[in-house]
Simulated scan of single mutants.
Amino acid sequence: MKALVQGRAPLEAARQVGGTLTPLFDQVDAWQRQLQQHLDEVSASAGVLDAEVADFALPALSEPSGLASGVGFVGAPGLLVGEGWHVAWWWLAGQAKEPRRLSTATPGGDQLRDYSAMEWWRVPSRTAARHLSGPYVDYVCVNDYVLTITAPVLRAGTVVGVVGADLLVDRLERQLLPLLTPISAPCTLVNSSARVVTSTDARREPGSVLRSDALAEALLLMRQDASAPLDVEFEEGARVLSCGSSSLALVIGR
Rank of each mutant, 00 (worst) to 15 (best):
D26N: 10
P182H: 06
G134L: 05
L179T: 01
W120Q: 05
A194N: 07
N191Q: 00
P229M: 06
A249G: 14
S116C: 01
V42I: 07
E63Q: 14
Y139N: 03
G18W: 05
R203Y: 00
D231S: 14
C141D: 08
L220M: 09
V196W: 04
D138S: 00
R8M: 11
A14D: 08
S125C: 02
N143M: 10
R33M: 14
Y139K: 07
T148E: 08
P124C: 10
G253M: 03
R15Y: 15
H38Q: 03
T127K: 12
S192E: 09
S246H: 07
R15E: 04
P64Y: 10
L79C: 02
G109N: 09
G75I: 12
D213W: 06
L248Q: 09
S212C: 02
S65E: 13
S247V: 01
W31A: 06
L176M: 13
R101P: 00
M1P: 07
A129K: 15
A218W: 03
E233Q: 15
G108T: 10
P152Q: 12
V142S: 12
Q6D: 13
R155T: 03
R223H: 12
S193W: 02
V74M: 10
S247H: 07
L35C: 11
D144E: 10
T188L: 00
V209M: 10
L58A: 02
D114Y: 10
T188Q: 03
L21E: 01
W91I: 04
A13C: 09
G66E: 07
H38D: 05
P64A: 11
Q95H: 02
L39P: 00
S208V: 00
A88V: 13
V137N: 00
Q224K: 06
P10Y: 02
A93R: 13
L189A: 06
P64F: 13
V197C: 04
A129P: 00
L132A: 07
L11D: 10
R174A: 14
A13Q: 05
L154M: 13
A57P: 05
R101H: 04
Q6Y: 01
P59L: 10
L11M: 06
R15M: 08
D110P: 15
D201P: 08
P77I: 02
Q37Y: 04
Y145H: 09
V48A: 11
T198S: 09
L80Y: 04
A216I: 03
T104Q: 11
L24I: 12
R33A: 03
S125K: 15
L4Q: 09
